[in-house]
Design a protein around this nucleic acid. Structure first.
Length: 257
DNA sequence: AAAAGTAGCAACCGCCAGGTG
DNA sequence: GCACCTGGCGGTTGCTACTTT
């Protein structure tokens, strides 16, 4: 007996997500938390499989996602870590708060691979291409890349430790987010989801709200939620954030993001 | 201006590991 | 120990926007 598919694919929607779907998923997760991805689409009223919802949330909708291009420092660090871990994208992504494994994988395949090849380094082994056989002297640039790649273990660890300090902020954000979800899961905050969804979709003229703004707003408000014991404050903060998310989901500005 | 080629990225697919009954 | 379920991961595909010819 073969494995059953993760979900019944008949009648399920595929391809790019629509605003409405994003909105439904986001609303559902923010209000209910995540218990079982398989049930999420059904409960959220989506014609998607659980896997698809999970991927969409992780790679695109999560509030703590860091948007924007990779910096050179980030690229360098990806190269370093990749030289030690290989294509273990999720492990690599864990070193970059706010970045997803998919994002890093894509960036590696489209940019970093080429960059390494240009510098004469094999993207898989991280060793100079044909240098041993041909005995060609290295350019200073190549030497620099090799130096970066062959950083001793302890040196890499030190760098990661330094990075971990900055990760604390994100860790606390995620912690706050967990607490938020926890509160929501307990059913202590009950909003009318349908009303919220309806009002948001009609908000076409809302001002633009970037992910970064959203994140900052979220950080501030979720932090205040944790400090405050007042349920009303939590409700207000959450509602405010949701309103801003709603305006963010007016797609003329969402596309720019 | 149009066609062809390329790059970037979101999303899907299939496999695997861990948990559960 | 086995069968099954679910979440997670890495590889790949396909669409879209951009660039080049």
């Amino acid at each position: 007996m073969g494995r059953q598919p993760c979900c019944d694919k008949i009648g399920l929607k595929r391809g790019p997500w629509t605003i409405e779907e994003d909105h439904k998923l986001m609303n559902f997760i923010l209000y209910n938390g995540i218990h079982c991805w398989r049930r999420v689409p059904k409960l959220a009223g989506l014609l998607r499989c659980g896997k698809s919802c999970r991927l969409r949330w992780i790679n695109y909708l999560r509030p703590d996602l860091k948007r924007g291009a990779f910096t050179e420092a980030e690229e360098d660090q990806i190269i370093q870590i990749h030289s030690r871990l290989g294509n273990r994208w999720s492990k690599i992504a864990s070193h970059f708060p706010g970045r997803t494994d998919n994002e890093i994988k894509n960036h590696w395949n489209t940019r970093i691979k080429k960059r390494l090849k240009l510098l004469g380094s094999d993207p898989v082994t991280h060793k100079p291409i044909d240098k041993i056989e041909e005995n060609i002297s290295k350019t200073p640039a190549e030497e620099k890349v090799e130096e970066e790649i062959n950083i001793p273990e302890e040196k890499v660890e030190v760098k990661e430790e330094a990075k971990l300090i900055t990760m604390d902020d994100t860790a606390s954000l995620l912690n706050n987010y967990d607490m938020l979800c926890g509160n929501l899961e307990m059913g202590s905050i009950l909003f009318n989801q349908e009303t919220n969804t309806a009002s948001s979709s009609s908000n076409g003229s809302a001002s633009c709200f970037s992910w970064e703004d959203s994140n900052n707003y979220y950080i501030n408000n979720s932090a205040s939620m944790c400090v405050s014991s007042s349920l009303h404050q939590q409700e207000d903060s959450l509602q405010q954030w949701m309103e801003n998310v709603d305006s963010m989901f007016s797609w003329d500005c969402f596309n720019q993001i």
